[in-house]
């Protein structure tokens, strides 16, 4: 039994809905994140004028940062070290300083070759879930209670 386990395979069922887990990121967090890949402030992710220059209404959260946020939400739910595949489609701009609702729905479960795996759908939306900023899936490999 891994010391870090939060979710066990036996606790999951096809059709389960998890969340939304509500996150948000501040301007400062985005500036911090952008500094990691050599994209110093100001840029289209951190500055209003730069964002408008490339046709955006406002600065947006970078795709790889949005993915990191989804990954964090998976950790919050299922524990660390369980993601075997995270596959996201970015459909809309993710805003700063706004609630981001991350929800998971279990779409498949399987036990094969000693692996306990759970596939889940992912959506990230604003408070009104009319059209997701992000859709995708995650494949989680979970510990068993047995």
């Amino acid at each position: 039994m891994p010391a870090t386990a939060k979710l066990y395979f036996e606790d999951t069922e096809l059709g389960d809905e998890i969340g939304p887990i509500i996150l948000s990121v501040t301007d400062e967090q985005v500036i911090d994140f952008c500094s990691l890949w050599g994209n110093p402030h100001p840029n289209r992710f951190t500055d209003q004028a730069e964002a408008e220059r490339v046709g955006l209404d406002a600065p947006i959260v970078p795709g790889i940062m949005s993915m990191a946020l989804v990954s964090r939400a998976l950790t919050d739910w299922a524990g660390p070290g369980v993601v075997s595949d995270l596959d996201l489609v970015f459909r809309g701009s993710v805003p700063h300083n706004q609630p981001l609702h991350v929800a998971f729905q279990i779409s498949d479960t399987s036990q094969q070759d000693g692996l306990n795996q759970v596939q889940c759908d992912i959506t990230m939306t604003g408070p009104v879930p009319d059209r997701p900023y992000i859709i995708g899936t995650a494949l989680l490999t979970l510990p068993s209670r047995e």
Partner: peptide, 23 residues
Amino acid sequence: TYTRSVGEDNPIFTDADAARAAG
């Protein structure tokens, strides 16, 4: 910096001792 900027606060990502304790 990565974990702080996305709020990833599980100890294995933030604390070397906790990570070692987890293997």
